[in-house]
C-alpha cells in the first residue's frame, strides 16, 4: 500500500513539475527549466511521450521472455503473463504513437511523415496487431500459446534489423533519444530528475496494471478449470 501512495503522489508531482515549471533561458534555481531552442513548450512532451514508448518496449521484451518461458516449461501461467504484457504493450504503443503524431503536427507540420522513429513504432504496432490476429484465430489453448510465442520470437528478432537498415535509407528529424549517439545524457539536472522519475513512475504503473490483469486472468482460468471438472 505504501508503494501505491508513493506512486500516486510521485506521478502527480511529476505531472505538475513537468507541465507547470517555467521555462527560462538561463535557469538559476532548481525550479526552472531551460528553454529548448526551436521547441519551447513543446519540449515538455519528453516527460510523458518518452516514458510511454519506453514502457511499450519493456512490455514487448517481457512478453517475449514469458513466451520463451512458456515454450520451455509448457506452463499455461507463462502464456497468461505473455498475453497480458503484449496487451498492455499495445495500449502504450498506441498512446506513444498518438502523442508523437500530435507533437509532430505542431513541430514538423504533419501528423505522419515516415520519420525513422515513426516507421519503427509503426512496425511495432503491426507486430502487435498480427500477434493478436494470430491468437484470435486459434482455438486450442496450448497450440495458441506455443504458436504465438514462436511468432513473437521471430518478430522480436527482426526488430534489430531496423536499427541497421533504417539509417541507411532515411535520416531522422527526431530529437535525440534519452541518450544521444555520443552516449551522453545532456539534460539540465531539473529536467533529468523529472524525466527519470517519470520513467520510474510509468514503469511502476505498467507493472501494477500487469499484476492486476495477471491476477484476474489467473482467477478466471481457475474458475474455468473448476467448471470443467
Amino acid at each position: 500500500m505504501v508503494f501505491k501512495i508513493i506512486l500516486g503522489i510521485g506521478l502527480t508531482l511529476v505531472i505538475i513539475a513537468g507541465i507547470a515549471l517555467p521555462m527560462v533561458s538561463n535557469p538559476s534555481s532548481f525550479f526552472e527549466l531551460p528553454v529548448v531552442p526551436g521547441l519551447e513548450d513543446k519540449a515538455r512532451i519528453i516527460f510523458f511521450h518518452v516514458p510511454t514508448a519506453w514502457v511499450c518496449v519493456i512490455a514487448f521484451i517481457t512478453s517475449l521472455i514469458y513466451g520463451i518461458q512458456y515454450l520451455r516449461t509448457k506452463e499455461i501461467l507463462y502464456d497468461i503473463k505473455s498475453v497480458t504484457a503484449a496487451g498492455l504493450g499495445f495500449l502504450f504503443c498506441i498512446l506513444a504513437t498518438v502523442t508523437g503524431a500530435i507533437w509532430s503536427k505542431f513541430t514538423w507540420g504533419a501528423f505522419w511523415n515516415w520519420d525513422p522513429r515513426q516507421t519503427s513504432i509503426f512496425v511495432l504496432l503491426l507486430i502487435y496487431g498480427a500477434y493478436f490476429a494470430l491468437r484470435s484465430s486459434i482455438e486450442v489453448e496450448e497450440k495458441r500459446a506455443s504458436l504465438s510465442a514462436v511468432y513473437s520470437i521471430i518478430a522480436g528478432l527482426t526488430v534489430p534489423f531496423f536499427i541497421f537498415i533504417i539509417p541507411r535509407i532515411v535520416s531522422s528529424l527526431h530529437p535525440d533519444p534519452i541518450i544521444n549517439p555520443q552516449g551522453k545524457i545532456h539534460m539540465n539536472p531539473t529536467m533529468l530528475v523529472i524525466f527519470l522519475s517519470s520513467l520510474t513512475g510509468f514503469t511502476a504503473v505498467y507493472y501494477w496494471m500487469f499484476n492486476l490483469r495477471v491476477r484476474f486472468s489467473k482467477l478466471l482460468y481457475q474458475q474455468q478449470m473448476k467448471e470443467q471438472e
Binding site: 501505491k4 502527480t12 505531472i15 507541465i19 507547470a20 492486476l212 491476477r215 482467477l219
Partner: peptide, 29 residues
C-alpha cells in the same frame, strides 16, 4: 498551460483511483 495541467492531473487521478478500486475488487475475489 495551466488548463492542460488541470486536465492531465484529473485524468491521472481517474486512472489512479480506477486502479486502486480494481486492486481492492480483485483482492476480495
Amino acid at each position: 498551460l495551466y488548463i492542460v495541467l488541470i486536465i492531465t492531473v484529473i485524468c491521472w487521478f481517474g486512472i489512479f483511483g480506477y486502479l486502486l478500486s480494481l486492486d481492492k475488487k480483485i483482492k476480495k475475489l
